[in-house]
Amino acid sequence: MPDAPRILYCHCAYAQVVPPDVKAAVLRRLCESGAAFDAVADLCEMAARRDPALKRLAEGGAVKIAACFPRAVKGLFHQAGADLAAERTEVINMRTQSAEEVSAALASADMNLNLPQGKTEAAAAAAAARKT
């Protein structure tokens, strides 16, 4: 039986873009659950630092990340040189989902793989044009 996915929680400490009541409720439930988890103050700050910790957070099997938009989370990790693997990453969006939805997703053994992947048509066409 595979290991349960790891949990990574982002507190988005340096902006008010994640509703405070949502992130507080999600963290409270994590604390009540008895589960092991990694919590970071702010993924953006870590990405800006090129923090090597992001590499260890990206590695090591399936991971569920409670943060913001999947496109942004993917970009932040990439910019820090710590690519997330699409086949084992789920990003749960605390900007748009309720605390109940986020907590349920974190607690579930199922993975909803949702990292955007692949070039858009425009980007692919531009790359092809450069080759000709």
């Binding site: 349960a4 008895g34 988890f37 103050a41 702010d42 090597p52 260890r56």
Partner: peptide, 21 residues
């Protein structure tokens, strides 16, 4: 977290491996 620290809470399950920090 409000003070900017990265915190790992141990318990049931796995967490990210150690790095050189």
């Amino acid at each position: 977290l409000e003070r900017g620290y990265t915190v790992t809470r141990t318990g049931t399950g796995t967490v990210a491996p150690a790095d050189r920090s």
